[in-house]
Amino acid sequence: MIEALRLEFMQNAVTAAVLASVVLGVVGSLVVVNREVLVGGGIAHASYGGVGLGFLLGLDPAVTAMLFGVVAAVIMGVLRRYVRQRNDTLIGMLWAVGMSLGVVFVQLTPGYTANARSFLFGSLLSIPRGDLPLLGAVAAVLVGFVVLYYRPLLVHSFDRDFALSRNLPVFPLELVLLAAIALAVVVLIQLVGVVLLIALLTIPAATAGLFTRTLASMMTATVAVGVLVTLGGLSASYTFDLPSGPAVVLTACVVFIVVRGVFLPMRGLMSTPLADRSGCRSDSNGGDPSR
């Protein structure tokens, strides 16, 4: 595996995996704490319409997927605010329409379009060096945004009504958050593809959430977990000649199960007041050790 790092395609894959982990850290954590996992899946699948459009028009599918994803995210945000319709219904429609458009556009594209399949399941080992600056730029924009707007994002994510009562720009924050998910999609789509993206957007952040106390530490830990699972999956893919996307997702699942097994019983003990453990609850969630 170490020798393989001398190969350019492997260097590209490792760089992309690290950049993707940074994106996972900031956006995946926000997706998980905002309970927007389904939205992440919806935007990811809608962006496949952009992939198909890129093939049809002869443009870079990564760029058109990003633009398509951002437009889909903004449409979703506006519809959620102004159209009285169940949230999951809107997401499901956007999900299916985007995928359908992608398939139709690819079908209409003349010539050989086998590369379109790599956007469905990812192809970490075939990421061209030319795509890395775009991935780096997206990661830098997302990290910069989260660093600058961490506190408003924290309030909005935890208690939307309180954010409204403080006159914070809640609707713009929601739109930007959806656009951030769309930008994350363009990075992650190259690793695991549209179909498996929802797993990578969720599992590393959920893993980090098992042992962190703040959103900031959850984001940092998610980057570390992301590096572990993407490089672990990449290594498994190279060593056992497996498809890279599924290898990364399966590695993420294994890491989640192990970390949950290690931390959750310990976390339960640490966070449960003594009164709870003795069966003497003073109210619905235990005693009051400060008294």
Binding site: V33, L154, V155, S157, F158, G209, L215, M218
Partner: peptide, 12 residues
């Protein structure tokens, strides 16, 4: 279940 400390919640 939100990852949040008492200090961060008050600081909101």
């Amino acid at each position: 279940e939100f990852p949040l400390t008492v200090r961060d919640l008050t600081a909101m």
